[in-house]
């Protein structure tokens, strides 16, 4: 095999460095304020991870494709987090999550099993309060959906439903 044999001293040095960094990160976490703390903590964690990957996982002596594979996962994770946060951090209006307990849409909101008319439309619209045009269009879509739903459940008086439309 072509694998290079690394001296024990190197491994011991890496372990020592990792333990020192562990002490450093705990100390920093105890001393610093929360805002700065997370940046420091993540930077130290990254350094530790890089040490493990390079030395313990032998990427330092690895072929280019192994290095690429090692980087790819983290790069793609950065895409996932980065683009999701692009959305979250630039939403204006209250976050959709601040619905007080108990007032969430009721069971009928899913797929198309009998939506509860106007309430659903309101909710659809309230998800994007900042955008008048999009609210309008949502209400229009909602109305269309309700029409179809009335026809679904109603059957009782389809003629009337059509007359309303």
């Amino acid at each position: 095999m072509s694998e290079q044999i690394v001296p024990v001293k190197t491994y011991a040095g890496v372990l020592a460095a990792l333990l020192v960094l562990l002490v450093a990160t705990v100390a920093a976490g105890l001393i610093e304020g929360p805002g700065l703390g997370i940046t420091t903590a993540l930077s130290i964690a990254t350094v530790k991870a890089v040490l493990i990957v390079l030395f313990f996982m032998h990427v330092r002596h690895g072929s280019p494709i192994v290095r690429l594979a090692a980087v790819a996962g983290f790069l793609w994770l950065a895409l996932l987090i980065g683009l999701s946060m692009t959305d979250l951090l630039t939403r204006d209006g209250p976050p959709a999550t601040d619905i007080p307990a108990g007032s969430a849409p009721d069971a009928s909101l899913g797929a198309n099993s009998s939506p509860t008319g106007p309430k659903m439309v309101e909710q659809l619209a309230s998800f994007s309060p900042r955008n008048e045009a999009s609210s309008q269009s949502l209400i229009a879509t909602g109305t269309k959906i309700i029409d179809a739903a009335i026809t679904t459940q109603g059957a009782a008086d389809r003629g009337q439903a059509r007359a309303v439309r």
Binding site: A69, A70, G73, L77, L80, I81, S84, M85, L88
Partner: peptide, 24 residues
């Protein structure tokens, strides 16, 4: 290594959730 890349993204979903709710 390729398997580990998939593992990064497997845990990655949870890390994304963490980033998301920690921000909120």
């Amino acid at each position: 290594w390729i398997f580990l890349a998939t593992e990064v993204l497997f845990f990655g979903g949870l890390f994304t959730g963490y980033a998301y709710y920690r921000t909120l």
